[in-house]
Amino acid sequence: MIDFEPWDRLLHQYVDRKGRVDYFAWKTEQPQVLDDWLQSKKHLHLNSQLTVMEELTLWINLYNAFTISTILKQYPLKSILPNFLGIPNWLAFLWFFQRPIYEIFGNRYSLAQIENQILRNKLKEPRIHFAIVCASIGCPLLRAGAYFPEQVMQQLDEDAYRFINNSQKVYYDFDSQKLYCNKIFKWYRQDFLQVAPSIPEYINSYLKTDLPLSAATQISYLDYDWSLNQRIS
């Protein structure tokens, strides 16, 4: 199992309580620390006897560390969705997730492989959608600390609670009786339906206020903000 204390220290230093990342300070003060740490791990042997909690911890941390490492190399940038002459470059955007450039355990992985093949298909944990980040404002907020096996289930519950009770991600309009949701609930609908009868009922299980939500509740999906989730120093 990888020692995630160095990653944990970096997150505590450069991520605030609102999940915003101070990329400017990070790149100015410690531009190579994260990348060097990841490079030092690429030839490690993957233990085949890891528990589910250890695997969740391992791959959530690696996904986020790989993402932030890539953003630091490209920083400064305004959005993770590139554009050319004002037109979104979806090909370059998809390549960000699909290219197998991350070396670990003697193999190369893409972010999409880690997310889909391991975290979703193998571990089948829908709460990872509130934990892994693409570095945009629309995605989950980055936790100001690493995940650890003895805490990961509680951490994922905290992530789900924080995401669902954030009015920029989820809110209910009493006048229209419509539930407005982040598009994560659309894109990964089937993951959430593995553990709940409907999306509104899944959301309701984490809300801190009692809302009249049921399988019949109408859903509208919010526009996704691909702007970089950053804190301005």
Rank of each mutant, 00 (worst) to 15 (best):
M1K: 10
I2E: 05
I2D: 02
D3K: 13
E5D: 10
E5A: 13
E5L: 15
H12A: 12
V15T: 07
R17K: 13
R17P: 01
R17N: 15
G19Q: 05
R20C: 08
V21W: 04
V21P: 01
A25P: 06
W26T: 01
W26A: 04
K27R: 15
Q30P: 01
V33T: 15
V33G: 00
V33F: 05
L34A: 08
D35C: 00
K42F: 01
L44M: 13
Q49L: 08
V52R: 14
M53R: 09
L56T: 02
T57W: 02
T57H: 04
L58R: 04
L58W: 04
I60N: 00
N61V: 02
L62R: 06
Y63L: 10
A65H: 00
A65S: 05
T67A: 11
Q74Y: 03
Y75D: 03
P76V: 13
P76D: 12
S79N: 09
I80E: 02
I80P: 05
L81A: 10
P88V: 11
W90C: 03
A92F: 08
F96G: 14
E103P: 13
I104D: 03
I104M: 14
I104T: 10
F105K: 04
F105P: 03
G106D: 05
N107G: 02
R108L: 15
L111E: 08
Q113P: 04
N116E: 11
Q117I: 03
Q117M: 09
R120P: 05
N121K: 14
N121R: 14
L123W: 02
K124M: 07
K124N: 10
I128R: 08
H129T: 08
F130K: 12
V133N: 09
G138R: 02
L141R: 12
L141V: 09
L142C: 05
A144E: 14
E150R: 03
L156R: 02
A160F: 01
Y161D: 01
R162E: 00
F163P: 00
N166Q: 04
Q168V: 09
Y171T: 11
Y172V: 06
D173Y: 13
Q177H: 15
L179F: 01
Y180Q: 15
Y180S: 15
Y180E: 13
K183R: 15
I184G: 04
F185T: 06
F185G: 06
W187V: 11
Y188T: 10
R189H: 13
Q190K: 14
D191Q: 07
L193R: 10
L193S: 08
Q194H: 14
Q194F: 11
V195S: 13
A196Q: 09
A196L: 10
S198W: 07
I199Y: 07
P200C: 04
E201H: 12
Y202P: 05
I203V: 15
I203W: 10
S205G: 12
D210V: 14
P212W: 06
P212Y: 06
L213C: 07
A216K: 14
S220V: 12
Y221V: 04
Y221T: 00
Y221G: 00
L222K: 07
L222M: 12
D225P: 00
W226F: 14
R231N: 11
R231M: 12
I232A: 07
